[in-house]
Write a protein that binds this DNA or RNA. Structure first.
Lengths: 129, 129
DNA sequence: CTAAGGCTTCCAGTTGCGGGAAGCTCAAGA
DNA sequence: TCTTGAGCTTCCCGCAACTGGAAGCCTTAG
């Protein structure tokens, strides 16, 4: 199967698929004409990767997860460990964004947003919190 | 004032300060020996930038905000507009992260995390939800 | 036979810096 | 006075995870 159809079926842009091959996440065969020839297993892997990426896993995490997926002798604890670390990273990011949101929304509320130059937002930025 | 002391006072690494000069956010003078010579106003700008960055504004937003800050004839509506757009971007990111968090925490909870290979996390990634 | 579309590779750009090399300058100690 | 050592300079590479675009081959329909 050529990259275009694979792209549709796996839900990933061709560019991304080529990139994943570059970094060794998938290893499609090649046809005589030089085109990539994907097997069902490749599509399956790509869909796996797409799903893992939407959950926010890094490429390296994806590599690890894919390896574990294909390792019959894996222990689920290994998978859980990767997922838990990612979860705490997500929590950190959420906390950080919420903190920004908090400050920023106060400032936005305090700003008149009219034709006059006076602005609490700029005043805050200028003198630190 | 040399870059080292400015770095301490503005709370930004020297590398970052040089980068900000590269992209035209600050324009320190130069001493005869070629060293950057920062004025108080430069430090003030750098602190402004540092604060804006911790609130998550992009460099381009920072440039805009700095321009507005120095523009006596600004209208606070312009500032508020930039801040509001950033705020909605933050809200989008928070929503996305929360969605990831939701899915991921369910999966993590469902995984035994023991020596056995069976794993709901991998199963989910494999078949998509 | 030709044109369009799909495929290939390769290179550059994105965001916001950080690391490190090579080399100049300056201040302090033997 | 000479020599360190720290601090400064520029320059270029690398990161994550792609995306866009150029140049060129392959295939298929008209």
């Amino acid at each position: 199967m050529n990259i275009g159809e694979v792209s549709e079926r796996a839900g990933l842009p061709p560019k991304t698929i080529r990139y994943y091959e570059d970094i060794g996440l998938v290893r499609p065969l090649r046809s005589d004409n030089g085109y990539r020839a994907f097997r069902e297993s490749d599509i399956h892997k790509l869909a796996f990767l797409g799903r893992a990426r939407t959950l926010g896993f890094s490429i390296e995490d994806c590599r690890t997860l894919l390896d574990l997926y294909e390792d019959e002798s894996r222990e689920s604890a290994q998978v859980k460990s990767v997922a838990k670390e990612h979860l705490t990273a997500i929590d950190r990011k959420i906390a950080q964004l919420k903190s920004m949101r908090q400050t920023l929304s106060h400032l936005v509320d305090a700003c008149q947003g009219d034709y006059r130059p006076d602005c609490p937002i700029l005043e805050d930025l200028a003198k630190g919190s």
